[in-house]
Design a protein around this nucleic acid. Sequence first.
DNA 1: CATTGCCTATCAAGTGGTAGATAGACGTTG
DNA 2: CAACGTCTATCTACCACTTGATAGGCAATG
Lengths: 187, 187
Amino acid sequence: MSSTSKEAILAAAKRTAQAHGYNGLNFRDLADEVGIKAASIYYHFPSKADLGTAVARRYWEDTAAALEAMSAETPDPIRCLRRYPDVFRRALEKDNRMCLCSIMAAEYDDLPDPVKREVQTFADINVAWLSKLLSAASVVAPEDSEPRGRAIFAAIAGAQLIARSRSDVSLYDALIDSYRTAGLLPA
Amino acid sequence: MSSTSKEAILAAAKRTAQAHGYNGLNFRDLADEVGIKAASIYYHFPSKADLGTAVARRYWEDTAAALEAMSAETPDPIRCLRRYPDVFRRALEKDNRMCLCSIMAAEYDDLPDPVKREVQTFADINVAWLSKLLSAASVVAPEDSEPRGRAIFAAIAGAQLIARSRSDVSLYDALIDSYRTAGLLPA
DNA sequence: CATTGCCTATCAAGTGGTAGATAGACGTTG
DNA sequence: CAACGTCTATCTACCACTTGATAGGCAATG
């Protein structure tokens, strides 16, 4: 079997990065968690930048798959859109973590360029998914679906950020609720 | 005059932290920027945690003053609320920086407790100011003004975060625009 | 016997923090 | 006035530790 280690490294790095960001990643702790030595990580990832890129790419790939699964499972676009905030809620539930790409957006200046690109792709796939469903649900005019999708994505990222700064998932719920009341999210 | 250095350190630390966060602060670079030696910073701030706390406190104090000035200058609450997003826009204009407290919210797990408290206070004063004006402007029912204030604050923080990840101020403007269209912000 | 996957050992750079010295300003006191 | 002690603000010189990264070796597998 080729490298179960590689997958384990990716998984551990993802968890750590969701709590401490790209800068919070370090090879020693990562290796400890996986059960190998720090130097061995270099066998699988030639540099920290490569590891960071792989983690961020895997993250949006997984998210894209999860979103596709969600819209397959819930064909009604309005009901499906209603479930979208749950995706971001789950990170908070799991030890007050964040969306990997939000935390990396905050570190933007310190990110290697390839990592930046993956972070942007994450935003792109979210906005694309949202705007497709907004369009399908006729929540907004088709030409407004992309800006609205972007707005929803940004607002939810913000809600997660603020809720995290209080370690309070219920604050996240309250914010999503307010977005609905205000008309940003379909009620 | 007692320590112009202390003020210079605070100012430099604020600038750096708005781009690289609390973890991005380091005494050598800070000292270089101010024109003193790293060890000398310890004369003014006994530890990095103390420096971070002082920076964050100063930040919300300045913000509170700016918000008060704004509502004094623009008595009409609706017009004043319209100006609120400008406060966060200015950070992006200045070399793609962020609100200090948003970037620190992302680093939440690595923050000393006193710093966390200052970060939360920043959110508090913003929400209080917003909900006061929302109430005065009768945008929402008085009992809904606080949740709505929170929602606006979170959404704007999110817009700043996303715009930063693209180094694109015009994206921020577009997001604020969408918030207005959607009804989150008074149009 | 070459490749795979991991190891030990080490490095250079950078980190927050400490110890102790110094130079000048200031006020008090003989 | 001059000598003294003290306070302020800074310095030089370290230290212990962490970081990403490299070199080279070792055992198993096919």
